[in-house]
Design a protein around this nucleic acid. Structure first.
Lengths: 337, 337
DNA sequence: CGTGCCTGATGAACTGTTTCATTTGAGTAT
DNA sequence: ATACTCAAATGAAACAGTTCATCAGGCACG
């Protein structure tokens, strides 16, 4: 209790929380006492009595934090929270998509009530888990890109970056450079690769070019997958002048394979990736579709904070555009204006 | 209050917390009621009345989360916490080393009492901040590598990875390959580069080789610094057969510069980095001193949890060894057994 | 049958803050 | 002088658990 020095009591609360109707003299007296005793309010008692705590939880399913996109999203979340006076927990979470929602062993943040006021579901998520969270009544927002939905959930309370548009633009860019034999690589069994593939297909179709894709399901290591997919393309001896890879890691894998076969990028083959998180660190910079992951995180956090304040509100989906970053791994095949 | 269904009361508490001395019949009755009402304990009330919450806070000073080492450390912290039933907040923090400890605007987690039970101070830290935390009486543990200490603090409650040993081994490796003109690059005004430089100096000294280092203070971008430092070395036209870079980013920068000058790695110049966080993603793999960052995080979290339980305890420093990973960017100059 | 002991259950007290109905006191109008 | 109004301050209640001293009841033993 802070009924010290000054002869006040619950008035201290009003001073701390900056309520009006406090006489200036009293306010000063209380503030002086706070300084002198260097009093820090007990956050536990506050959140208990308020039945609220300024805490979000970032739940990352099936991904690691050192995944370049996810560490940056997390960074964006942190930045918004810092501004808004919120805190953020992060947890990894792993579950089997097949389990019934009610049977899931939920992440610990959800096992008690009142640990976090809103959760951000990121990484790859399935309907059983999202449904279970809904069931619990905990406010949540969703990173929609890797959400493998059966399609019956409304597009609200979620943030998404525009993979389709990014892939479409990247493919169009190659087409405008004069490329016709553009191969897409990426396992379309995975929804994010499928969406990128669809953007690619649209651009190819609109230009009456024949799409050719190496979309086999391979290992978990994207670098190796880029490797192997490219080997498979080369073995086919089909015409090839450009590769659009489903992500940067695959693109780097492809690059290595091309080099091993004596093919130069961009002289012989043009190459485009997807992600753009490596910044200047990757030795050879890649032309790529850049995702502004910090912005994604920032918007997720913003939406989550809104939800803590009015949990019933259904917020419209936020779509973050992607941008094509040109870094010299593509070569024009002929002059076109 | 959970005085529902069953006719119990505070006994519910004993059931939930798994105390002994509860009659089996009663216990079952309570558990049934818990399931039926799907009751989740109120974490806020619990932590309030216990005056403790299983929460650590990871405070990252002067660094970003997408920094490859730090996102992995965070990952290790999360892994330990998951096992131990703790939660972890992460916050970035920025301050000026010159400010008096008592004048610092502390990170928000420290502004109230009881938000986190122990804090992990990571990133680059100075004595004013560490002192201020000490002053507050909040238990803390320190990532010691980037701690710029005036030297008067005891080496307790901290974790460190062995930069000196790593640099020493890397340099020795080059020496054993027959290299004599080994240049170190890295701004020794920064303590971590200085320690690595000292490891380098020791190895050179023990082998009666003349150390030659390009240790200028340059920009904030390590890739560019590797670039520029290497340019400076080449301009000198001094003998050069190997470069040991203070970190991987600089090594990649150096590599690019060498390539621009028509020098091949490892044919003409051998190259070693420090960090080893890029794994298989970096196109050309680098021989480097690998830091097991997850282990660092894991140990930090473990120590932090111990401190929450007995804050007075002074735990001895934990040193994580580094390992030299050989990936073909070094060439033997002559045969030595 | 009385006493002591032990297990298991009880319910009151306590935690630090917010909230809100109530009180105080000064000022103003009658 | 009295009544009324309003701003400012007060203090009690409430929050949902944990803890602990106490109590009830059963059992063994003398």
């Amino acid at each position: 209790m802070a009924t010290r020095a000054g002869v006040a009591l619950g008035t201290v609360s009003r001073v701390i929380n900056g309520y009006p109707d406090v006489n200036l003299r009293l306010r000063e007296r209380v503030e002086k006492a706070i300084r002198e005793l260097n009093y820090r309010p007990n956050a536990r008692a506050q959140s208990f009595v308020r039945d609220a705590s300024p805490i979000l939880s970032y739940i990352l399913s099936y991904r690691n934090f050192f995944h370049p996109i996810h560490s940056r999203i997390l960074q964006g979340v942190e930045e918004y929270c810092e501004e808004a006076g919120y805190f953020v927990f992060y947890t990894k979470y792993q579950y089997t998509p097949g389990t019934l929602g009610s049977e899931l062993r939920l992440p610990r943040v959800l096992q008690s009530h009142g640990i976090a006021d809103c959760v951000i579901l990121a990484g790859t998520n399935y309907d059983n888990f999202v449904g279970a969270v809904e069931e619990l009544g905990v406010p949540y927002v969703l990173l929609a890109n890797n959400y493998v939905s059966p399609g019956n959930r409304e597009a609200v309370d979620q943030v998404r970056f525009d993979e389709f548009q990014g892939a479409y633009e990247a493919t169009n860019y190659l087409i405008h450079l004069g490329h016709e034999h553009i191969w897409y690589i990426g396992d379309v069994a995975l929804p994010w690769f499928r969406v990128r593939h669809e953007g690619y297909l649209k651009a190819m179709g609109e230009n009456r070019l024949e799409p050719c894709a190496e979309t086999a399901s391979l290992s978990d290591d994207p670098f190796t997958n880029g490797h192997v997919s490219t080997e498979m393309i080369l073995e086919k001896k089909a015409p090839l002048s450009a590769i659009f890879a489903g992500n940067d890691e695959m693109a780097y894998g492809a690059w290595e394979t091309l080099r091993n076969h004596g093919l130069d990028v961009p002289r012989d083959i043009s190459l485009v990736g997807f992600g753009g998180q490596y910044g200047p660190l990757k030795l050879p910079q890649l032309t790529t579709v850049r995702v502004d992951s910090e912005e994604v995180g920032w918007q997720l956090a913003k939406m989550a904070v809104q939800k803590t304040k009015s949990p019933k509100l259904r917020l419209p989906e936020v779509v973050i555009p992607t941008t094509l970053e040109k870094h010299g791994t593509c070569r024009p095949l002929h002059l076109r204006s």
